[in-house]
C-alpha cells in the first residue's frame, strides 16, 4: 500500500440496488460494504452480471440505490436532495467502458473537456482555455493541434484519454473507472494504465477501478475486492489476495486467468457451471452451488465478511488455509 493513509474518502454501507424486471425483482447489488482510503486504488473484480458495474453506477447515482448508505468525505449521498447530491457528486467522477460512445461525436474536444467547467460555470474565456489545454497536455493530446477536432475523429485510446481529461477538470477526490481499458488493444491499454497511475499521483486521486481482467486490476490496485452475484466475497491487499486467496471463488478466478507464458503451468482446476440467475439467488452463500467445498452450513447461513489479518477480509465459512491464520 503505497500512498494510502487512513482517511476514508468513500464509505459504502450495505449498498443495495434492485431492478424491477416485469414483476420480478433482480437484486444486482445485494448489500455490500467497503471503505476507500485517501490515495488508494481499490480494484473491483468479478464476472459479468456480478454487479460490479452497477455498484459503480449506484455510487454515481446513475442508477438509484435501493438501500444502504454512501458516505463521501463523511457526507451521506443518498439522503440528500437533488441539488445537494449534485453538489456532492462534484467530488466524484466516472470514466466509462466504451471510449467512443462516451464522447459526443458532434462536439469539439475542447468543449467536451470543458463541459464540467461550463456546467458549474467555474471558468470562462482565457482561464477556461488554459485549464483545458493543461488537461489535454496532461493526457498526452496536443491541444493546439487537436483541441478543435471533433470527438468522432479519434481512435478508442485517444477517446479514453479525452474522457480522462474531462473527468479531471473538476479536480475530483474520487475517480470511478468502469472497465476503462477493456475495449482497447494491449499496447494502448498499457499506455492508459500507465497514464492513470501517473495522474493518480499528480492529482492525489482515490480510485475505484472496476474491471473483469484480473491482471489489469492487480497491476493498478492497492487493494482488490472480488464480487460474485451481488455480494463481496473477499477484499484485501492486491499482492496478498492474489498470492493467497482465501475465498474458493477467488482461487478459481485466478486459476482461470491465462498467463501469457507457455511455460507457466496453468491451473487445471476449472470452475464448472455458470453463475445462477440473480432473480433467484441461492440461499446462504451465493457461491455454494458451484463451490466444491460447500457444506450444509453454506446453504443455511450466509457468510459475513470477516477479518483474517493483514487487512484481508473474506466472506466464507471455510476460507482456504494457506492464506493466513
Amino acid at each position: 500500500m503505497s500512498e494510502a493513509n487512513n482517511k476514508v474518502v468513500l464509505s459504502v454501507k450495505d449498498l443495495e440496488v434492485t431492478f424491477r424486471k416485469g414483476r420480478q425483482r433482480v437484486s444486482a447489488v445485494a448489500g455490500i460494504s467497503f471503505d476507500l482510503y485517501e490515495g488508494e486504488t481499490l480494484g473491483l473484480v468479478g464476472e459479468s452480471g456480478c454487479g460490479k458495474s452497477t455498484t459503480g453506477r449506484a455510487l454515481m447515482q446513475i442508477v438509484p440505490s435501493t438501500g444502504g448508505q454512501i458516505f463521501v468525505d463523511g457526507d451521506e449521498l443518498t439522503s440528500l436532495n437533488k441539488d445537494e447530491a449534485r453538489n456532492l457528486r462534484r467530488k466524484m467522477q466516472m470514466i466509462f467502458q466504451d471510449p467512443i460512445s462516451s464522447l459526443n461525436p458532434r462536439r469539439r474536444v475542447k468543449d467536451i473537456v470543458a463541459e464540467p467547467l461550463d456546467c458549474w460555470k467555474l471558468a470562462k474565456g482565457a482561464e477556461r482555455d488554459s485549464i483545458v489545454s493543461d488537461l489535454l497536455n496532461k493526457v498526452g493530446i496536443d491541444p493546439a493541434v487537436y483541441g478543435n477536432r471533433y470527438a468522432r475523429q479519434f481512435s478508442g485510446g485517444q477517446c479514453q484519454r479525452i474522457s480522462i481529461a474531462r473527468s479531471l477538470a473538476m479536480r475530483p477526490r474520487l475517480l470511478i473507472c468502469d472497465e476503462v481499458v477493456s475495449a482497447l488493444d494491449v499496447s494502448i491499454q498499457a499506455q492508459i494504465l500507465n497514464l492513470l497511475e501517473d495522474l493518480k499521483k499528480e492529482y492525489g486521486l482515490t480510485m475505484l477501478f472496476i474491471a473483469h481482467d484480473l491482471a489489469v486490476v492487480k497491476n493498478i490496485s492497492d487493494r482488490v475486492a472480488v464480487m460474485y452475484l451481488g455480494k463481496l466475497c473477499e477484499i484485501g491487499p492486491s499482492d496478498t489476495l492474489y498470492a493467497k486467496p482465501a475465498h474458493p471463488y477467488t482461487e478459481f478466478l485466478l486459476g482461470a486467468a491465462l498467463e501469457a507464458d507457455p511455460e507457466l503451468e496453468q491451473s487445471s482446476a476449472t470452475l464448472g457451471g455458470e453463475p445462477p440467475s440473480p432473480l433467484n439467488p441461492p440461499s446462504g452463500c451465493r457461491f455454494r452451488t458451484r463451490c466444491p467445498f460447500a457444506t450444509e452450513k453454506c446453504a443455511a447461513e450466509e457468510p459475513q465478511l470477516r477479518d483474517i489479518g493483514e487487512g484481508h477480509q473474506v466472506a466464507c465459512h471455510f476460507p482456504l488455509v494457506g492464506a493466513h491464520q
Binding site: S2, V186, S187, Q189, A190, Q191, L193, N194, E197, D213, L214, A215, V216, K218, N219, I220, S221, D222, S238, D239, Y242, L254, A257, E259, A260, D261, P262, E263, L264
Partner: peptide
C-alpha cells in the same frame, strides 16, 4: 514466447499486464 526476434513481439508481451507480477509494475508501452 522465449526467443522472439521481432521487437514488436517483445513489445506486445511486455505491455501485457500479468497476474504473476506484483501490483503497480510499470508496463512497457509501445
Amino acid at each position: 514466447f522465449r526467443n522472439h526476434k521481432m521487437p514488436y513481439t517483445r513489445a506486445l508481451l511486455e505491455s501485457t499486464p500479468r497476474v504473476s507480477n506484483p501490483s503497480h509494475t510499470r508496463l512497457q508501452t509501445i
